[in-house]
Amino acid sequence: MSVASPAGTAVAPAVPEQPEAARVRRFWSSRRNTAALVALVVVAAAGALLYEESYIRSGHRAHAWRTWISDQLANRHLDDAWAIAGAAVLCALGLWLLLLAATPGLRRLLPLATADTDGLRAGLSRRAAAAMLRRAALETPGVREADAEVGRRKARVRAVVGFGDPTEVKAALAEHLSAERGRLGLVRPPMVNVKVKGKS
């Protein structure tokens, strides 16, 4: 995809993609919302139990909710449908939290190349990349309507030709978009897939 530079490649060994790929550092989400939600649930549950245990310990009778829970736990066997469903839900929740803890998140941000900017890291939102591609498509002569979607590896541009030969418009569009793809400045620019429709 990258255009080989005419000079200077002889000095560096011809591995243009490898160091480029190694430099990709995703943005890692702080997982603030999930953490707040889990912390809130744990505070509520542990706080309620703490209150109830000290309440019982100081000689009171347990509240109805506490009695209901202990009755349910005592009367349901492990092979009860509710017990199995509950255990499956616990497993799924646990896996989900582990997944959230281990993955970067922030999939809407594409890392920008910042090799020549000291100490600065930057990301471009996928929506912004799509807006740039759509704008470039609309600037191409002959394109009447355009729509762009940018994924993490692929981008799709759909254009409607207003005038001119669709084949020529498509060629011009592809050229224009490949220039715009470079202008995005991403560490790993998405592959741009162009679809052109004739005038409807």
Binding site: S30, T34, I84, L93, G94, L98, A102
Partner: peptide, 30 residues
Amino acid sequence: SRTAVNRTLLALVGLVLLAGGALLLAGGLD
């Protein structure tokens, strides 16, 4: 950092839930 704290504690809670759920499931399905 807050990110590291959040991710560590989320992983811990996730492990506890997964282990508890897996034990109960192992019991229920024999």
